[in-house]
Design a binder for these strands. Structure first.
Lengths: 148, 148
DNA sequence: GGATAATAGTAAGTATAGATACTAAATTGC
DNA sequence: GCAATTTAGTATCTATACTTACTATTATCC
């Protein structure tokens, strides 16, 4: 069982715990929102009128996945999608009123749950982990992604 | 864009880089093997005759996902699956000769690629990251998973 | 030893996650 | 200003990843 000592395996486990903690808190809040859906809403909230490719670039996803994510956010009524008047290829995105309310409501919960993602670490270790993670990710983060 | 400072987002990015690096090296080696498939083969190599639920427990997956992973490894001819003589519910797994050869061939590559997963970190930082990651994951790792 | 509970595997359904390819539209080069 | 390239979105396909539910089988308990 060599995988136990490999970075890839540990990172996958961390991601597994992360999504699990997120799902648990959403369920407790009676909400049906996934981590990607939240990230997409964050990108739209910070950049009203952004298009799907823009969202994908901001949160480091491919266009195909984000297309599906936006479909589901549309179906839930959290975002609006309109053909851009500047560029008829692009779809301009905004949070709906319901989406804005939801995002503001859920934000403190999502912020708070982050500490539970690293259950074996104390505050100091978590800060160190975050610093290393940020540094590790930086080289592959595109300019202006903010992902520094 | 609050997600940039959240552990969940950074961990997802790390996992994304990790799977990307893995896929790249496999392609360069002319092989068609995913991270999970490799992890499953590692579990079977270390525990010949283990069943699917055992593999799932060893590498922290659910039974449904592992069922599909084993299906694909079977189709590629890397593992064998037989109904257990002790327990007719269970399927006993072994690496085939081809699987054993492949696993031994690919192992050094997989070992070596781990450093590329954390491109922004030097050796010392990587070691620290690994230690923190192991510690972070430990509380949620079941007894005997080896995932300490 | 027979009802009950637990377990192995599968099936069905949802949601990422990303590669590839295609259409429509915009940009660039000259 | 038009051909060539690039880009936005979608469609298709494969592979996780997990939940719930179901069947078959085994283990447990009284």
């Amino acid at each position: 069982m060599m995988v136990y000592k490999m970075a890839g395996h540990l990172i996958r486990r961390l991601n597994q715990i992360s999504t699990h903690v997120f799902a648990q808190h959403m369920q407790q809040s009676g909400l049906d929102l996934t981590p990607v859906q939240f990230a997409a809403m964050d990108a739209i909230a910070a950049n009203p009128g952004i298009d799907q490719a823009g969202v994908a670039a901001k949160i480091a996803y491919d266009r195909a996945t984000i297309g599906g994510v936006i479909d589901r956010l549309l179906k839930k009524g959290y975002v609006t999608r309109q053909v851009s008047t500047q560029d008829r290829r692009a779809r301009v995105l905004h949070l709906s009123n319901a989406g804005q309310t939801l995002f503001e409501d859920i934000f403190p919960t999502v912020q708070a749950l982050q500490d539970e993602i690293l259950p074996g670490l104390n505050a100091k270790e978590r800060a160190l982990f975050m610093e290393l993670a940020r540094k590790a990710v930086a080289p592959t983060s595109p300019q202006g992604s903010g992902d520094s």
